[in-house]
Nucleic acid binder design. Structure first.
Lengths: 227, 227
DNA sequence: GGAACAGATGTAATAATATTACATTCTTTT
DNA sequence: AAAAGAATGTAATATTATTACATCTGTTCC
């Protein structure tokens, strides 16, 4: 029962210069280093980026350098990242992107189900599905072993595809700021689907955000309060 | 199966001048008109306001004129209202409140479970619980027939009290903008509680926001698309 | 009654988040 | 190689929210 953990205290820092340009970054061969990776992405991150590029192109989307950089920064961060954080991190070398640049990349990544927006934090996290895909096939060549008809439905219930329902559930710790995506059970989403069906509501996207105290912080608070 | 409906196209308009001041507005006797009601609140709204004042004072909160006005405007509106909408509506007669005024009132009302914030819209709606209370006892004198220990747990699962869990579920229609609070079933919240318990997460507040098409708009879209 | 305290409000400035509108460049298609 | 569509660059601005500090109000305690 391991949950993808995204430990908070936001504002991670990365490094250096500019990337190439508008052309779709090809995934699969020679692992993206040749495409320009000025932010010091880890090997793991680059693997996920390649995987994302594959998912993307299946849906007829183009994983451009801009979008790749933004996704990479979000993947690399150990906490939800705000749009203006990203903006700042993108201000390396000669490039000085303006807000629309980042927001457009974010919109694209959201539409393709590669990231989620946490409304209560106005911040973004990677979709855990990406990691799951990558575990199944780290090469990034095959984005899903069960992929059939052009888009992919993950175990956690949300779809990677322009046509599907985007849904995600998060636990947000008020003490340490840690955010955890609940992606290991379809029960919540199933329940929402049931209720929506009963009310004849067509669900297109859903978000569940629970705030409180994570395991660790619950323990610490009890320790501090007792006696 | 009637759901409280909040039909959207925001920015409702109300009228006129300033209210009294800092003193807690008393509920129950003579229905609040004597307290100054410059916004043309309906009788129904005034009833709910009185009811809210009662709930509030039970929790040791003070329903001041400022807070009452804000709650009234939210109750009166037929759609989620933004903070700056409220600000504008409060700009009647001599008063020119600044943002903190409104945000403070909103914080108070949120803490006391009288309103909810819809994250995806950055806007506020009344908690349906208030209406339910009022139906049970329109006088506002008894805020809950089953009130025992100082705070109230409604059928919809959220509590009215500084100590409780604040939770709400919304259906948001992308076509007409209508927002519906799901308050007629505890299933969703129960499920969240279960999952949080499994993950040893202490839930303090939860929000579920589903975007899509309401019954009406689903029908209309299908009609427009078919053939 | 009046001092002291806490809570609530007033006010100005500014921070943080997000969008609009339009020009330019790149990619793909024809 | 031209046309069409997608993506990006850029400047300005809109929207939402907060900080910091002064003032006022109501309550409590003597």
């Amino acid at each position: 029962m391991n949950m993808p953990r995204i430990p908070h205290p936001a504002r991670s820092r990365n490094q250096t210069s500019a990337a190439t340009d508008n052309a779709p970054v090809q995934a699969g061969h020679d692992s993206a280093v040749q495409a320009g990776d000025p932010y010091g992405f880890s090997e793991h991150t680059r693997g996920l980026l390649d995987c994302a590029a594959t998912l993307c192109s299946r849906q007829g989307g183009r994983m451009t350098a801009q979008r790749r950089d933004v996704l990479g920064l979000i993947l690399q961060a150990d906490a939800p990242v705000g749009a203006y954080d990203l903006l700042e991190q993108l201000r390396v070398s000669d490039r000085r992107p303006a807000p629309p640049t980042v927001y457009r990349a974010l919109d694209f990544l959201l539409e393709h189900g590669l990231i989620h927006r946490i409304e209560r934090l106005s911040a973004f996290v990677p979709c855990t599905h990406l990691s799951h895909e990558d575990e199944a096939d780290p090469s990034g060549a095959s984005a899903s072993s069960s992929a059939r008809s052009g888009h992919v439905v993950s175990a956690c219930g949300h779809e990677h595809g322009a046509c599907g329902v985007h849904a995600a559930q998060f636990l947000i710790c008020r003490a340490c700021g840690g955010v955890t995506e609940i992606a290991d059970t379809p029960r919540i989403l199933d329940m929402l689907r049931t209720v929506c069906r009963e009310k004849a509501f067509t669900m297109q996207s859903a978000s569940v955000e629970v705030e409180g105290l994570c395991v660790t912080c619950t323990g610490q608070q009890e320790a501090g309060t007792e006696r």
